Amino acid sequence: MKRNLLITAVAILGVSITASGQHALTHTQHGALRTVMNPASSLMHMDGEVNVVGRRQWLGMEGAPQVFWGSGHLGIQHFGATAGFQVRHESLALERLTEASAFFAKRVRISAIEYVGLSLNAGIGYLDGRFSQLDPMDPAFREDVKETDALIGFGVMLYRPNRYYVGLSLPRLMLGSLGVGSEHRYNFRNQYHLTAGALFALSTDFQFRPSLLVTYADNLRPQVDISALVFIKDVFGIGMNLRSYGDIAAMAQVNFGGVGLGYSYQFNPSDEPLNRRIGNNTHEIGINYRFGGVSDLL
């Protein structure tokens, strides 16, 4: 019975991903938690920062996607640089992918008020695919997959502190995909991120923060996320996120001291038969702490 449930869950998940355009697993709070997408953005907070984001999709379904991101860094003030780490863990049905890397970023002043930041990261990725739990009698699912691959990445960002930023990153380029190292049975998918955001003062007490995330992964269609939040006295923000393929999210963020706490609830209003059978609601929680006791909006 358990085996049949697993097979059914994996089959439905596969159909769902295909039907929805094969979404890349990214988070909606990219306007506040940027370092996990582009380590070069760490240069915007030289005092240091710690970020944690958790996302759980399709609640109530066994094997539904779950993703966790984490990052932290400290500034090297006299050198205009930062050093830190990134972790990511995602699970989908019987697959578990874990990544960990360290990064170094350096900024260069290009005008009196603008900087360009560059980052490099390196680490490892580990896949644990327990496919034999599906049907050990089927040759296609007889063997589990446990593979480790080295990864490298880079990021570049143009920014003006507390005003705007534009960045491009490839945080995960698996060396196995370049033909380096031993042969792999599993194709680790590389992801490319284009990020942008700005902060506008609407009045003395109100500020507007739009942000953009465009993600491209090998063999998948580009995914576009647009978020917009309005903040009151830099403390409380409320807004929404629109994602390609029709997903909508309500978002809220609270800042106190150096702590920022964000939440988003994402859903797809489509009335297609697949969406009626599967609860497509997604919950996401993000927490960040910025050293120095200031929780900047940008």
Rank of each mutant, 00 (worst) to 15 (best):
R55S: 09
R55K: 06
D234I: 06
S264Q: 03
Q86T: 12
F206Q: 04
Q22P: 02
R185G: 12
W58L: 15
A150R: 03
T28D: 15
V294T: 13
A64K: 11
L229R: 07
Y126K: 12
H283G: 11
V235Y: 07
N219T: 14
G239F: 02
G179A: 08
E143A: 13
G54C: 00
E183R: 02
Y159C: 04
S177Y: 03
G21P: 06
S177L: 05
Q77R: 08
M61E: 15
A102I: 13
H89L: 00
A250H: 03
G48C: 02
S270Y: 01
G279P: 04
L168N: 06
L213P: 14
D47I: 01
G246P: 09
I17M: 14
N255M: 01
V230E: 04
R277W: 07
E284R: 02
E147N: 09
A83V: 15
Y164S: 00
G63E: 08
Y164I: 02
L6R: 09
D296E: 08
T26H: 09
F200N: 08
D47Y: 02
F200R: 08
L92C: 10
P139F: 06
H27A: 14
N280M: 12
M61R: 15
A83N: 05
D271H: 01
G60N: 13
H89S: 09
V145E: 06
L212Q: 02
V235N: 04
G31I: 01
Q191W: 05
A100F: 11
K146N: 14
S270V: 05
V15L: 09
R185N: 12
A198E: 09
Y159R: 04
A201V: 08
A250W: 09
F200Y: 13
H30C: 08
A228F: 13
G153C: 03
S91K: 15
I226M: 10
R209G: 00
G292M: 12
L220A: 10
V10Y: 06
G125Q: 13
H30V: 15
A19W: 06
E183C: 00
T148N: 07
G239T: 11
L118I: 12
G167K: 06
Y186L: 05
D144G: 05
G48Y: 03
R3M: 02
Q223E: 15
G21L: 09
E147V: 14
M251R: 06
G246A: 11
V235Q: 10
Q77S: 11
L168T: 02
